[in-house]
C-alpha cells in the first residue's frame, strides 16, 4: 500500500504563503519510496494558485467552491474530513499559522487522527511518526511519538524547513466540493488592515528592537535616545505592544512586520520564534540580554550578556563620542 503525503495549501488573498513551499519540500522528502506528494488546495477560482504550485507537487487536489474564497475553519473541516477519510493519506502536513491553528485541532478530533502541533521536524521510523518540538520558550526540545493509526496530522512551524525547488509537474485533479448548505454559525465578514503609524520600521537601515526585558515604561526614553544616537528607529517584540508601551505598527514578528535592516539590535528580547521570524533577515544582528541562555543568542552575530540598564547608557555614550569625533 502506498503511503501518500498531503500538504494543505495555505493562501490568503490570492497569494500562496511561504509555509506551503516549506511543507511541500518536507512532504517530497517524506513521500519518496512511500507514495505520492499531493497538494490539497481549497479555494475559489484557483487557476493562478495552481500555476504557482505545479512545480512543487505530483498531484494537486483542487476543491473549488465560492464558499472557500476566504478561509473558514468550518468549511475546511467539512471538506478535509471527507477527503482525508476517503483518500487516507499517511501524513497530512499543514502550517502552525493563524490558518492551521484554527482548523487542525478540531479536524483531528472530528476524524480521530493523532495530531502533533508546531513541529520543527518529523521523522518516520518503522511506520511510527516522531516529531521534534520546541518548548519552554525554546529552552528545551521534546521528541513526541504519535499513537499508531492509519494517518497523522502534523503542523510545522513556519521557517523551520528551507524550501527547495523539486521540479515536478503536478497533475491537477478536480475534487467536487462536499459543502452542501451555507454555514450561518461562522461567517467571514471582512479583512481589517492594521493602522499605519508615524514611522515605517521596514524602511530603516538600523532597527533597535526592545522586548520584555525593558521591564518598565520609564526605560523607554533611554531606548529612544539610544535609537536616535545610532540613527535607527525603535521597534519591539509582542510584550511591549501588549503592555501598551509602543503601538502595533512597531511590532516585529510573525503577527507584526518583517524587517531586513543592515543592523538589528535586540535589547531585552529573549528570541521567541514569532519575533525571530520578523528579523532574522537582518544583515548584522546584535543581542543584548541578561540571560546567557536566551535563544536570541543563537540568531545574533554578536552578543552582550548583561543588564541593559547598564549597557545601553554606556553604549550610547560611546556612540555619541564616536559620532562627535
Amino acid at each position: 500500500m502506498t503511503k501518500d503525503i498531503f500538504v494543505i495549501v495555505e493562501h490568503r488573498r490570492g497569494e500562496v504563503r511561504d509555509i506551503t513551499f516549506e511543507l511541500l519540500t518536507k512532504g517530497y522528502e517524506l513521500s519518496r519510496d512511500r507514495g505520492k506528494l499531493l497538494a490539497v488546495l481549497l479555494g475559489f477560482q484557483n487557476e493562478k494558485i495552481i500555476d504557482k504550485l505545479k512545480p512543487f507537487a505530483e498531484t494537486i487536489l483542487n476543491i473549488d467552491d465560492e464558499r472557500l474564497k476566504e478561509f473558514n475553519a468550518e468549511y475546511y473541516q467539512i471538506v478535509l474530513s471527507n477527503l482525508l477519510q476517503e483518500k487516507k493519506p499517511f501524513i497530512t502536513l499543514l502550517g502552525q499559522t493563524a490558518f492551521g491553528i484554527d482548523f487542525a485541532p478540531s479536524l483531528s478530533t472530528a476524524i480521530d487522527l493523532p495530531y502533533s502541533s508546531d513541529c520543527l521536524d518529523l521523522e518516520i521510523e518503522n511506520d511510527t511518526v516522531f516529531t521534534e518540538r520546541q518548548i519552554y520558550g525554546g529552552k528545551i526540545n521534546s521528541r513526541i511519538s504519535l499513537a499508531e493509526n492509519w494517518g497523522y496530522l502534523v503542523s510545522v512551524r513556519p521557517g523551520s524547513i528551507a524550501p527547495r525547488d523539486v521540479e515536478l509537474v503536478a497533475e491537477v485533479v478536480d475534487v467536487s466540493s462536499p459543502i452542501k448548505e451555507d454555514i450561518d454559525y461562522r461567517k467571514f465578514m471582512q479583512y481589517v488592515e492594521a493602522a499605519k503609524g508615524e514611522v515605517d520600521i521596514t524602511q530603516s537601515e538600523v532597527v533597535i528592537g526592545i522586548g520584555r526585558g525593558i521591564k518598565e515604561d520609564k526605560n523607554l526614553s533611554m531606548m529612544e535616545d539610544f535609537a536616535k544616537s545610532i540613527g535607527g528607529v525603535l521597534a519591539c517584540s509582542r510584550p511591549v505592544v501588549d503592555a501598551g508601551w509602543l503601538t502595533k505598527d512597531r511590532q516585529v514578528g510573525s503577527s507584526g512586520k518583517t524587517v531586513k535592516p543592515k543592523l538589528y539590535i535586540a535589547v531585552g528580547i529573549s528570541g521567541a520564534f514569532q519575533h525571530v521570524m520578523g528579523m532574522k533577515g537582518a544583515d548584522t544582528i546584535v543581542a543584548i540580554n541578561k540571560d546567557p541562555n536566551a535563544p536570541i543568542f543563537t540568531v545574533a552575530n554578536y552578543g552582550i550578556v548583561g543588564d541593559l540598564l547598564q549597557v545601553i547608557p554606556k553604549l550610547n555614550e560611546k556612540i555619541t563620542e564616536l559620532k562627535g569625533a
Partner: peptide
C-alpha cells in the same frame, strides 16, 4: 495520542560571538 519520548537541550548550532 501523543507521547513525550524524551526531552533534550536544543543542539548548540550557530551561536553569537559573545
Amino acid at each position: 495520542k501523543a507521547e513525550v519520548v524524551k526531552m533534550y537541550y536544543p543542539p548548540v548550532g550557530k551561536m553569537a560571538e559573545i
